[in-house]
Amino acid sequence: MLDALNHAGIAPDKLQMVDSTVYRAHHHAAGAKGGLRKRLLAVREAASRPRSISASTAQALPMRTEITPGQDSDYTGYDMVMADNLPQPAVLVADRGYDSDKIREDIESRNALPMIPMRRNRRVRKAVDMTIYTLRNMVERCFNKLKNSRRLATRYDKTAESFLGFVDVACIRLWLRHLST
């Protein structure tokens, strides 16, 4: 559904943002049915605090969401979110967690401008236009709108599939609100 909305060209997609947030699991999220192995995986999954990674537009609308384990770094989920079937951005804004040579090369291969501040340990520094970078708060606003849903904020779902399904439902709800106004 989100892919269809992305390709419809309804929302401006020249400025895209990538970020991640952590959803804390409620203690009822452990104990999925289906045998000991599945229950152990569900407990480990609930304890790992899943991290939702989202690509967003300049209007704080989610374009794609994926779930990675909470202990993973931000840049590990970049490839899942920024697949080839998303519209091509002109500028991609992200925070320092996405500062890697591989990500910068991928953005430049898409003929887009990376607006990612350099990590402090980098020797070669590249300038970042701070007026564009300050728009990154739109992706944070997108996560805040998603976390207004109590089911997402507390994560009662026992499996990652059902949690991601409800994240997608909440994303579609944001799109419908935007399209109805």
Rank of each mutant, 00 (worst) to 15 (best):
R51S: 10
V81P: 01
D106L: 11
K158V: 05
A42V: 12
D19V: 08
P50L: 09
D168T: 03
I53R: 08
K33Y: 04
V124C: 07
G34K: 05
L164M: 15
D129W: 11
E105L: 06
A112S: 08
Q88G: 01
I116M: 12
N148A: 03
R173D: 11
D19Y: 08
K158E: 07
R141F: 00
V81Q: 03
L40V: 14
Y98F: 04
F166A: 00
R104G: 01
K158A: 07
R49C: 09
Y75Q: 06
V43D: 10
I132N: 01
R151H: 01
T181A: 14
I172C: 04
K145H: 15
G165W: 00
N148R: 08
R44T: 06
A25I: 11
G9S: 01
R136Y: 04
G31F: 08
S48V: 12
D74R: 01
L86A: 00
R122N: 03
V81M: 02
G34R: 10
A60P: 03
R177P: 06
D13V: 09
K38S: 14
S56E: 04
H27V: 07
E45R: 13
A170D: 09
R96A: 12
A83Q: 05
G77K: 07
N148C: 13
T131W: 14
D95A: 04
V128A: 15
D106W: 06
A29R: 07
K33F: 12
E45K: 06
S20I: 10
S56C: 11
I116E: 15
R125N: 05
H27G: 04
L92Q: 06
A32F: 11
R24W: 14
M1G: 07
R123H: 11
T131K: 13
I10V: 07
G97T: 08
N144M: 14
P89W: 11
T76N: 02
L5Q: 07
D95I: 14
A58P: 01
V22E: 09
T131E: 07
K147D: 01
E66G: 00
S162N: 06
V22Q: 14
A127L: 09
M80G: 00
V139W: 05
P114Y: 08
V128Y: 14
D74Q: 01
M82Q: 10
A8Y: 03
L92S: 13
T131Q: 15
N137F: 03
A83L: 00
S109Q: 14
P114S: 07
R119W: 06
A112W: 15
N137I: 02
A47M: 10
L179W: 11
Y23E: 15
L41A: 11
L86I: 00
A47D: 09
V93E: 02
V139Y: 04
R177E: 09
N121M: 11
T65D: 09
I172K: 08
A127K: 09
Y23R: 03
L2S: 04
A90P: 00
D129K: 04
A25Q: 12
D13E: 05
H7Y: 02
M130E: 15
P114H: 12
R49K: 11
M138D: 15
S162W: 00
A83M: 01
G35V: 08
A29Q: 09
G34S: 03
A153V: 11
L152D: 00
A83F: 00
E108G: 03
F143S: 06
N111S: 06
A160G: 07
R150H: 03
R125L: 10
